[in-house]
């Protein structure tokens, strides 16, 4: 494995009396998709917010390309090259696709917005991702859920990030749209980006992830090579026991084993 682009060690975060993260480690390398797994309340979202600078960690070290860094604000993460795509709240519904893609990083010429340059680059970017859109000048409110997710992911690429965090990118999507988003994740990996994928969907994880890092109750609960690890092992790590509702269910009905966790 190449040198990690992002390396977190000993990250802890408290919310009042609740220890949301306790000495958590996580690494991601360039050209690698790491799935971040865990049950509800395991601390996945908290860890994402730590990396994105929305909720800084109380303690712990963050190494970015081998350098010690501190991420205290979203702008810090963006400057380093860490892009975060949230499940929702990522786009401004009233703005068109081009405006959303360049939100916060608008191109200007002589102090005015350079719409031509932005639209040209937006077209190029979406072409390079093989993304099809009806028009770049419609408000994103008129797009489907999958298209919105793709726009949100595409937007993060404009900043030439090195690490992309995806928070449940396929949670609200249909089958075809999920496939589109998974294709896009693979293209990100092929571009040499480090991808952290948060998902509840084991099928998605097995489809695109190289590694699976499991959190349980705010602590590391295992780091697996997805290809060499069985579905049951990962589920056991997520639930904290080999005897868990998922395994009991699959023993009862071996023929219809579900890939959903």
């Amino acid at each position: 494995m190449s040198t990690p682009v992002l390396e977190l060690s000993g990250i802890s975060k408290n919310f009042g009396a609740v220890q949301a993260l306790n000495q958590v480690d996580l690494t991601v390398s360039a050209g690698e998709v790491v799935a971040l797994l865990g049950d509800n309340g395991a601390g996945k979202s908290t860890l994402v917010k730590v990396i994105a600078g929305v909720n800084p960690a109380d303690s712990g070290d963050v190494l970015f390309e081998g350098q010690q860094v501190s991420i205290n604000r979203p702008a810090d993460a963006q400057r380093l090259g860490i892009a975060t795509i949230y499940q929702d709240l990522a786009l401004c519904d009233n703005l068109d696709i081009v405006a959303n893609l360049f939100l916060g990083v608008e191109k200007t010429a002589f102090g005015a917005l350079d719409e031509v340059e932005m639209e040209r680059r937006a077209l190029k970017l979406l072409d390079s991702l093989s993304v099809k859109m009806p028009s770049l000048r419609v408000p994103v409110a008129s797009l489907s859920g999958g298209q919105r997710q793709i726009i949100a992911i595409a937007r993060s690429l404009l900043g030439e990030p090195k690490v992309v965090l995806l928070d449940e990118p396929t949670a609200a999507l249909g089958v075809a749209q999920t496939a589109q988003v998974l294709d896009l994740i693979e293209r990100l990996r092929d571009r040499g980006l480090g991808v952290i994928l948060i998902s509840h969907n084991m099928a998605d994880v097995r489809a695109v992830a190289d590694r699976a890092a499991v959190l349980r109750l705010g602590r590391n609960a295992g780091d697996f090579n997805v290809e060499e690890t069985s579905y049951e092992q990962i589920v056991a790590a997520i639930t904290g026991a080999s005897d868990n509702p998922v395994s009991r269910r699959s023993e009862r009905t071996p023929a219809t084993r579900t890939e959903e966790a």
Binding site: V54, L89, C92, A99, G104
Partner: peptide, 25 residues
């Protein structure tokens, strides 16, 4: 409002304050 970054930010905050904040505005 239409031609400057400032104006675009005003629209962005009006359309989705949280999205605007996460875009670094």
């Amino acid at each position: 409002l239409r031609k400057t970054r400032y104006g675009r930010m005003v629209f962005a905050v009006g359309g989705g304050a949280e999205a605007a904040r996460r875009a670094g505005i």
